[in-house]
Design a protein around this nucleic acid. Structure first.
Length: 813
RNA sequence: GCCCGGGUGGCGAAACUGGCAGACGCAACGGACUUAAAAUCCGUAGACCUUCAAUGGUUGUGCGGGUUCAAGUCCCGCCCCGGGCACCA
């Protein structure tokens, strides 16, 4: 029974081919087993997997394999988020058509996937850039169009005057075009498509309660903030020679302190009522906002020359335009209450506009406008406010809102920070929006039976001009589905977040050519039991996905409110101390690691180096350590096979089996509760260390049990080695389909425990006692111990704390 | 500015419910094997002090207080690092 040297190529390469050709990982339809849907976020096919991907997939794969062994019908699919800008950019650079570039990348990455033996059911693969997928994007879009959930409106886009094209947000670098660093982007208004996410704002917010406990709190908090519901009132201010201007405020109780009406630079009044000079100034503000990144921006504004009337006080107030007033929130106009709002205060002080305090603290005086250095935003008692004076803020809010409503110049209102989802992209590599513009009938949806609207293959991509599709006459020129007359196709394509908003439904029925999926299949597989991905998708992808599910529920396609039952967000991978990035050139590729150390080592290290939710540092030395560990396991097993040749006298059986079953208990618990696989693997290492130390005394029977259970415990983490050992022992078939072993409590039980004896909290002695004795017995044992008696000489015991299994603390004087 | 995380040896980390701080791994050092090296196996190891030595002692989880028989863990006040949001009226 000579030991065998661990050679990852020998163990992995052939098996990799076998598994790729097998149907080992197929999910069953119509199974009697309980289902488990585990999902990792689908990658963008950039061309190569790196260790960040490997970490993500190793977590999901370990879980999938564990659940298989627990007897579940596991659905574990994978696909490609294949539309998007990089393909288009690559095309412009290398003259390679986006589709070709993308499919080549997918082929390469799929090969790496199979090298790593991730347990995906590739029969369900989804590639979002293929017509059999994106036609359903179009189908959904048409449903939303019918329901008024998809609509068009004017919206601003980033525009580079040199490229004469629309830029995506990620193509804007420091406020300038990514290809013309000296050319600041401008904002241009274009007619664009939107999805009415705000129609579900309340549901998206309220249903967060269904996710609590199963999604990370910080993700839920981020989503709540993103939705940003706030309650207040809308109030009309009469503006001379214009009419009513509506504002939204959460502090109607301060309205007697409103001294200025401030409009967003995009406000209608600016366009319709003001002169060229004012319009130019407003335009400058809009462009400046696009160019400035986040950070403190100096407040700017100008007087419009117009005046408004405060509907409560009847006071005349100036109307200004301010760069800090957002058109996209509320009504695009605010009543400025400088005494009680920090931003208004800053603005009014800068432009020497009046400041009128109207709220005093419950136990204080009304602040003096002359002496104020900061606004006070607190609630308090309303003063200088006619009949409302003396009321508490909260009561005044109600009373004033009611009055405004009764008088017909206002009402209670709720505003969200969440905006409708702009899905138009003036890009080529995305799903064509399936509508036609007819001179007669306006916007007409393409009939379902004409889907998909195919993305033309032959398109010249220059990065210049309007949407690339607009330059393809065969695409643009069509007929109106209603009247048959000449018409033009929409040339915008969809945001790629559309693709990823529902791809996980398609996995359940990936080949359906009559519908996006069969609702019966969804009803079986959904919700996703465990979704795993990067926290960077905490907001957009996960809100859009939730929105999509709610929209689908409205269509009767799914019974669920929420698509994802449990969410896990894993940490980033740092490579040898530095954040991995292409520009730094320190991206650790999955292929090279597999070649050098094998997939098992890479996977195990990805799980060992840190708990999965935290950032981890990938170090070459650390990987070596894992490789050594796998070698230790393999050598130990092989030199003790066949078991018939193991001649140990059994003297260490109890000790090793105790450790074995304790380890099994721990790992089972880690899977079922906290996923700290780093400690699971550390426990396996401890076990193997114990095996080495006690090897000679192990009987053949115990050895068999040890090797068998170690093999099973390794199976979710290191599938190649586990299968190899499984077969070396003499078993056949996949270890993956073996039942997960149950820990034997009797064998795991410690019969003796070491107890520390403390004097005033300091460890002074140790004693070994039988496990499970009561605290009274423990106390007696400690006081009876010779060393303890020595230590106690001349001292008085004040108090004794005895904690069974842990310690005895003697408080002495 | 606001909201989350986090700060433990030379390094990655562990300590799950307040109960022996540093499991496990990396790097380091010592030994065995070897002609030698690699590989492998065994061992040492927070810091400081004391002892020929076994050992014994002090100190130690970002800083300062507090609660407790007992604090990395709980409470109060700060400092630093990372992430998210950022004029949301």
């Amino acid at each position: 029974m000579p030991e065998k040297i661990y050679d990852h190529n020998l163990i992995e390469l052939q098996r990799c081919e076998e598994w790729a050709a097998s149907d080992l990982y197929k999910a069953e339809e119509n199974s009697s087993k309980p289902k488990y849907y585990v999902l990792e976020m689908l990658p963008y096919p950039s061309g190569a997997l790196h260790i960040g991907h490997i970490r993500n997939y190793s977590i999901g794969d370990a879980l999938a394999r564990y659940m298989w062994m627990r007897g579940y019908n596991v659905l574990h699919p994978m696909g490609w988020d294949a539309f998007g800008l990089p393909a288009e950019n690559a095309a412009i650079k290398n003259q390679c058509p986006p589709r070709e570039w993308t499919l080549q990348n997918i082929a390469k990455m799929k090969q790496t996937h199979s090298r790593y033996a991730f347990s995906y059911d590739w029969d369900r693969e989804v590639t979002t850039c293929e017509p059999d997928y994106y036609r359903w994007n179009q189908w959904f879009f048409l449903r939303m169009l019918e329901q008024g959930l998809a609509y068009r409106k004017q919206a601003l886009v980033n525009w580079c005057s040199k490229c004469a094209t629309v830029l995506a947000n990620e193509q804007v670098v420091d406020g300038c075009c990514w290809r013309h660093e000296d050319t600041p982007v401008e904002q241009r208004a274009l007619e664009q498509w939107f999805l009415r996410t705000t129609a579900f704002a309340d549901e998206l917010l309220n249903d967060i309660s269904q996710l609590e406990g199963n999604w990370p709190d910080r993700v839920l908090t981020m989503q709540k903030n993103w939705i940003g519901r706030s309650e207040g009132a809308e109030v009309d201010f009469e503006v001379e020679s214009y009419g009513k201007v509506r504002v939204f405020t959460t502090r109607i109780d301060t309205i007697y302190g409103a001294t200025v009406l401030i409009l967003a630079p995009e406000h209608e009044i600016v366009r319709t009522l003001l002169g060229a000079e004012a319009q130019a100034a407003a335009k400058k503000m809009v462009d400046a906002r696009a160019q400035q990144g986040p950070g403190d921006v100096e407040k700017e504004g100008f007087f419009t020359g117009l005046h408004a009337v405060n509907p409560f006080s009847g006071e005349k107030m100036q109307v200004w335009v301010g760069n800090f007033v957002l058109m996209g929130y509320g009504t695009g106009a605010v009543m400025a209450v400088p005494a009680h709002d920090e931003r208004d205060f800053e603005f009014c002080r800068k432009y020497k506009l009046p400041i009128v305090p109207v709220i005093r603290p419950e136990d204080g005086e009304l602040p003096d406008a002359e002496l104020m250095t900061v606004a006070s935003g607190e609630y308090g008692i309303v003063e200088s406010s006619a009949q409302y004076s003396g009321m508490k803020s909260q009561d005044a809010r109600k009373a004033m809102t009611a009055y405004a409503e009764a008088q017909g110049f206002g009402k209670a209102a709720i505003t969200y920070r969440l905006k409708d989802w702009g899905v138009s992209r003036q890009r080529y590599w995305g799903t064509p929006i399936p509508v036609v513009h007819c001179p007669e009938h306006g916007v007409v949806g393409v009939p379902d039976d004409q889907l998909p609207v195919l993305l033309p293959r032959q398109v010249e991509l220059t990065g210049q001009g309007r949407s690339p599709l607009a330059a393809v006459p065969e695409f643009v020129q069509t007929t109106c589905p209603k009247c048959g007359g000449p018409a033009e196709r929409e040339t915008d394509t969809m945001d790629t977040f559309v693709d990823s908003s529902w791809y996980f439904y398609r996995y359940c029925d990936a080949k359906n050519s009559n519908a996006p999926f069969d609702p019966a299949k969804i009803a079986y597989w959904f919700p996703i039991d465990q979704y795993i991905g990067g926290v960077e998708h905490a907001i957009l992808h996960l809100i859009y996905s939730r929105f999509w599910t709610k929209m689908m529920k409205g269509l009767g396609l799914t019974p669920n409110d929420e698509p994802v039952k449990k969410l896990f967000t894993q940490g980033m991978v740092i490579a040898n101390g530095a954040k991995m990035s292409k520009s730094k050139g320190n991206v650790v590729g999955a292929d090279s690691v597999a070649e050098r150390y094998g997939a098992d080592t890479a996977r195990l290290f990805a799980l060992f180096a840190a708990p999965p939710e935290k950032d981890m540092d990938w170090t070459d030395a650390g990987v070596e350590g894992i490789y050594r560990f796998l070698g230790r396991v393999y050598r130990f097993a092989t030199r003790n096979l066949p078991l018939s040749e193991v001649k140990g006298d059994g003297s260490t059986d109890a000790k090793v089996l105790r450790k074995l079953h304790q380890t099994l208990k721990k790992i089972t618990n880690d899977f079922d509760t906290r996923w700290h696989f780093n400690t699971s693997i550390a426990a396996l290492m401890e076990l193997v260390n114990e095996c080495y130390a006690s090897e000679a005394g192990l009987s053949s029977a115990a050895m068999g049990q040890v090797i068998q259970i170690i093999t099973m415990m390794l199976a979710p983490f290191a599938p190649y080695l586990a299968q190899q050992l499984w077969e070396e022992v003499g078993n056949t078939g996949p270890v993956l389909k073996q039942p997960w072993p149950a820990a034997d409590e009797d064998l795991a039980r410690e019969n003796e425990v070491e107890i520390v004896v403390q004097l005033n909290g300091k460890v002074r002695a140790r004693l070994v006692v039988a496990a499970g004795i009561s605290s009274a017995e423990l106390e007696a044992a400690a006081l009876g111990d010779e060393k303890v008696r020595e230590l106690l000489e001349g001292k008085t015991i004040v108090k004794v704390i005895a904690v069974p299994g842990k310690l005895v603390n003697l408080v002495v004087k």
